[in-house]
Amino acid sequence: MGDYAQVSIAARGFYALEFLLFDDAFLATDAPEYHCTLVQTISADIAATSQDILGNWTETYANKMRNPSPDSLYQSNEEVLQELFKALSAGLQFTSETRLGRPLGTFDRPRAKRAEARRSARSSKHVKLSLKALNELTVALSEADDVLSDKLDKGFKKALAKLSDLNDPTFASLLEPQTRIKVKVIQQSVDAVRAIVRAELGPSLSVAAGFNSLDGD
């Protein structure tokens, strides 16, 4: 597995594993032993990576964020808030532009096959899990302002309610006008939360989102 850890990221992680487990064309190939070995290798690599992330968080980053100091990675509480706020902003942006925006495509050309985790029928579920996790982060960041916290919570609940009305786990029926409208409304609900986060939560924390990897060059 040591050699496998050096291969391209495209051949590693949960999406590579999803392809091996759920892609019909790949499953039809006549190489079951190789297929099984590859699944085991990728699974072991995911487990090792997950363990490294957990270890780095519990042993290093969590403590650095809880205890900022001039000679540490985070030198002040403001820098910690900036990092958490950036994570919130980037998470909402990714959900809107990638998890929802990519399959939406354009009105004339929706791209349902670009939906995240469509092979395993988890596209909609990933949106749900992301919104729930980001809502928890928002609650923590807005705890000093009850009115703002309630406003944000209602925004998340609205988006989640709209998502629950969508009976299409992979966004496969985006060619149908009703489905497209529903997904578009979900995206608009997420963007409404993004607007509150940017216009109200950021200033209340005296931070801005800054740039992230989704912004490009």
Rank of each mutant, 00 (worst) to 15 (best):
L129K: 02
L160S: 04
L166K: 01
N135M: 14
S206N: 14
P203H: 01
E136L: 14
I196W: 03
D168N: 08
L214P: 03
V147N: 14
D153K: 13
A140W: 14
S189A: 14
A161Q: 14
N135Y: 04
R198S: 12
K157R: 15
T138Q: 01
A192C: 08
L175R: 14
K151I: 06
D153S: 14
Q178I: 15
G155F: 00
D191I: 11
L148N: 07
I186C: 03
A133D: 08
A161T: 14
N135T: 04
I181L: 12
E136R: 15
K132R: 15
G155D: 05
E143I: 13
G202L: 05
L175D: 15
S164R: 12
A209D: 05
S130F: 02
G210K: 06
S173M: 09
K158H: 09
G210R: 05
S213I: 15
K158W: 04
D150F: 06
A161R: 13
E200P: 01
A161G: 14
N167K: 10
V193H: 03
P203L: 04
N212C: 11
L175I: 09
S164C: 05
D153C: 10
A208P: 00
L152H: 03
D150S: 15
R180E: 03
L141Y: 06
A133Q: 11
V193Y: 00
A133V: 04
V147Q: 13
T138S: 12
K154P: 00
A192G: 05
L148A: 07
V193G: 02
S149G: 09
D146H: 09
S130T: 10
F156K: 01
K125F: 14
S189K: 04
L174K: 02
P177S: 11
S142A: 15
L201S: 03
S164E: 11
K128D: 07
R180K: 09
A208I: 12
S173T: 13
L131T: 01
F211E: 12
V207Q: 01
K162V: 03
T179E: 08
A209T: 05
K162Y: 03
H126S: 13
D145E: 09
P169W: 01
K158E: 12
Q188W: 08
F156S: 00
A172R: 07
R180P: 02
G202I: 10
F156W: 04
F171V: 08
I181A: 12
G155M: 02
F211M: 10
S149M: 09
S124L: 12
L129A: 07
E200V: 03
L174P: 00
I186N: 00
K162N: 10
F171R: 05
L205S: 05
I186P: 03
K157D: 11
H126K: 11
P177L: 13
S164N: 10
L214W: 06
D165T: 11
A208Y: 07
V190N: 05
S204E: 09
V190F: 00
V127M: 02
